[in-house]
Amino acid sequence: MRIVVGITGASGSIYGYSLVRALRELGVDTYVVATKMGGQVMQYECGVKVEDLKKYATLLDNQNLFASIASGSFLTDGMVVAPCSMNTLGGIANGIGDTLLSRTASVVLKEQRKLILMTRETPLHLIHLENMTQLARAGAVIMPAAPGFYHRPTEIWELINFMVARILDAFGIDHGLLTRWGEKEGVQ
């Protein structure tokens, strides 16, 4: 399996960082591309530099439109943008492929592969909602960073893992990151 992870400048870079680490642990071939603001937010929120992700994945320059992931002939199982800023969402929704991240998202859509956009903004105005609707019609999965609480989390990492698990589920990747609804309490 091969997945691309995009990280943008929205708050919530811990989701992208945690996803990349989980994919590595699960043996998934992972490519990462981050916007400039995505790198800055990750450093601010997590104390992690984008370059540190080289331990877990192939890191690509967002300005390199010659990168493998910019072509539909480079086979992937899809892409996740976590977190996905409204700026990036708007660009993807309107077919703007001027960076590696937005170009790759466009390629994933045109090749009818899975594109998950973990939006991280609130409240939303009409343009945000219309962009999300347009992308959903084009085949993208809109997955707001909205963890559940039925597993009774007591620590932040449990909320993060809840959302990472939902992404892994969407790709059919087996994991043990959460207790599912209806399972006995404490059973992974």
Rank of each mutant, 00 (worst) to 15 (best):
Gln63Gly: 14
Gly12Thr: 02
Thr88Asn: 12
Val107Cys: 05
Leu109Trp: 12
Tyr31Gly: 04
Ala57Ile: 08
Ala34Tyr: 01
Pro123Ser: 11
Ala57Gln: 11
Lys55Gln: 15
Lys55Tyr: 07
Thr119Asn: 04
Gly6Ile: 02
Leu75Asp: 14
Val48Glu: 06
Gln43Ile: 11
Pro123Val: 04
Val33Gln: 01
Ala82Gln: 07
Gly47Lys: 08
Thr58Ala: 10
Met42Gly: 04
Glu25Thr: 15
Phe66Arg: 15
Glu121Thr: 14
Gly39Cys: 01
Val48Tyr: 02
Gly97Asn: 07
Cys46Phe: 07
Val28Cys: 10
Ser71Pro: 09
Ala34Trp: 01
Ala70Asn: 05
Ser71Ala: 07
Ile14Leu: 11
Ile116Ala: 08
Leu117Ala: 02
Val50Ser: 05
Thr88Ser: 13
Pro83Tyr: 00
Thr8Asn: 07
Ser106Met: 14
Ser71Val: 00
Gly72Pro: 15
Ile127Val: 15
Leu115Trp: 02
Leu89Phe: 08
Leu65Arg: 11
Val41Glu: 07
Gly12Val: 06
Gly95Phe: 02
Met37Gly: 13
Val33Asn: 03
Met79Thr: 10
Val32Phe: 06
Gly90Cys: 14
Gly97Ile: 01
Tyr17Cys: 10
Thr8Phe: 00
Cys84Asp: 00
Ala34Lys: 07
Val80Asn: 00
Leu115Ala: 01
Gly27Asn: 11
Ala82Gly: 12
Thr8Tyr: 05
Val33Cys: 12
Pro83Asn: 05
Leu53Cys: 13
Leu117Phe: 01
Gly95His: 07
Gln63Lys: 15
Ala70Trp: 00
Leu59Trp: 06
Ser68Met: 03
Leu23Lys: 08
Gly27Ile: 06
Ser73Val: 14
Val20Asn: 00
Met42Asp: 09
Tyr31Asp: 05
Met118Trp: 00
Val4Glu: 08
Lys36Pro: 12
Asn94Lys: 10
Leu126Asp: 04
Val33Tyr: 03
Arg120Gly: 05
Glu51Phe: 08
His125Glu: 01
